[in-house]
Every structure is written in C-alpha cells, then in structure tokens.
C-alpha cells in the first residue's frame, strides 16, 4: 500500500464543490448567528430579572448539548410540526443557532467590560438605549470582539463537518463520497484536511487584517498605554 494522490485527479471538482458549500454555509451561519447573538446579548442586558433568565436559558441550553444532537433535534424535529425544509437550509440554521449562543456571550462580555459610565453618560444626556449602544458602546468594543469571534467562527466552520450526517453535500460529505469511489481513504482525508486547514488560515488572516483596521481607528481614539496595547493585541506590529 502506498500513498497515491493521483487517484484524486478525477474527484477534485467534487471536493471543491464541497469546500465551496462549506464556505457558504459557514458565512451564512456567521451572519445569522452573529445577528441573533447581538440580539440575545442586548436582551440579556435589559433591566429586570426576566430577560436575563430567558437568555441565560437559551445560551446554556445551546452550549451544553453536543452540536450533532442539536442538529438531529432540529432536523428530525421540524417534520413533527409539518415543516419540511432542505437539509442544507436546516443545517445552516442549526449551525447559526449553535454559534449564536457563543457570539451572544462574546458580545455581552465585551459590553460589560466597558466602564458603565460610558453608557450612563449617553443615557443621561437623552440618548435612547439603542442610540447609546450604537454611538457610544459599539465603536468602543468592536476591536475587542474580533479575536474571540474569530475563534468561534473557526470552531463553527470546522463543526459544519457534522452537517454531512444529515446529507448536506459539504466538504466532509463529498470526501466520504470520493472515499467510497476510490477506496483511498488516506489520500482523500489528507486532501480534505489540507482544504479545511487552508480555509481556516484564510479566515484567520482576514480577521487579523480586520483587527488591525479596527485597531488603527481605535488606537488613535482610545486612551491606552502603547506598551499595553502591543501586548493586549494578537496583531504582530511592524513598527
């Protein structure tokens, strides 16, 4: 038995199709999950005990169940309500749901880390809670959001492999197909591993640039010790 990458020549298009779908699903789940995460974080910070209780239940439920089980519950549960949707759609929604719990915690923690006086001074002058969030809080937490959000997005992208179990034809699903056709599991999975690796590296690089850009705007603005700034960031500075 020897390593023979030539067996993959005919199947590249299939793997690339899978990779493309993985990317699409991940981006869609990122957008939907983040929107839901922000909403959950904002509700969690509303006054009173009820919003915290409800969002706490939401977050803890999604964080304490394996993703594959969330996926099965959603995928096999929906038909009970008479809802039949394509597997790709259901899979993406489940992935967004899963990620939203983590994004919510990231956003909530970033808002809580900002001194309370910032929000209060905006409220005291007459801004609505949403205006205060938009004009005063959001611009100051953007940068702090990037590194943990990137971690979660990478985790989520890799977790999307689980969608293969409900027949979503993403990268892992296609690799199983190709493996079945070629009987060359090592070659196939080695190739797939490097595709996942490449996608993760690209996402990390995009995030690094994003952090640098947001950072450039903010380093100018936020009072912070320059030395502390250097060590608190994941960005390797050139200067």
């Amino acid at each position: 038995m020897h390593f023979d990458p030539a067996v993959l020549v005919d199947y590249w298009p299939l793997l690339l199709q899978g990779a493309w779908l993985t990317l699409q699903v991940s981006v869609a789940a990122l957008v939907m999950g983040y929107a839901a995460g922000i909403a959950v974080a904002l509700i969690a910070l509303m006054p009173g005990w009820l919003p915290g209780l409800v969002t706490g239940f939401y977050v803890e439920t999604l964080r304490n169940i394996p993703f594959i089980i969330i996926l099965f519950v959603v995928y096999y549960g929906l038909p009970f309500w008479g809802i039949r949707l394509p597997a790709t759609l259901v899979g993406t929604a489940a992935l967004a749901l899963f990620a939203s719990a983590y994004y919510a915690e990231i956003v909530r923690a970033a808002i809580l880390a900002l001194p309370r006086g910032q929000f209060e001074s905006a409220r005291a002058i007459g801004m609505s809670p949403m205006s205060a969030m938009w004009h005063v809080v959001a611009p100051q937490i953007l940068r702090a959001l990037v590194p943990p959000s990137t971690n979660m997005t990478l985790t989520m992208m890799k977790e999307s492999a689980v969608l293969s179990s409900i027949t979503v034809p993403e990268l892992t699903y296609q690799s199983l197909v190709v493996q079945g056709n070629t009987f060359a599991p090592f070659e196939v999975f080695a190739a797939v591993a490097s595709i996942y690796w490449l996608m993760a590296v690209v996402i990390a690089e995009i995030s690094r640039r994003l952090e640098r850009r947001v950072g450039a705007v903010q380093a100018e603005a936020v009072s912070r010790n320059r030395i502390a700034d250097r060590y608190l960031s994941l960005v390797a500075r050139r200067t």
Binding site: G117, E120, S121, A122, I125, G126, S131, A221
Partner: peptide, 30 residues
Amino acid sequence: RPQVGIVFQQFNLWPHMTALENVVRPQTVV
C-alpha cells in the same frame, strides 16, 4: 433628560470621539 445637564465626577467623555464630536453628537442624535 437633556434639560438636566450632568457633569460626572470622572467626566465620562467618549474616548473614540474628538472633543468637538463629544459635544456635537448628542445634539444631532438627541
């Protein structure tokens, strides 16, 4: 609320805005 101006002990200026923008933004928003 705009009728009651408050100057906090720690001032609570918004660090991501210039001095002028700190004064301008609430006028336009509120």
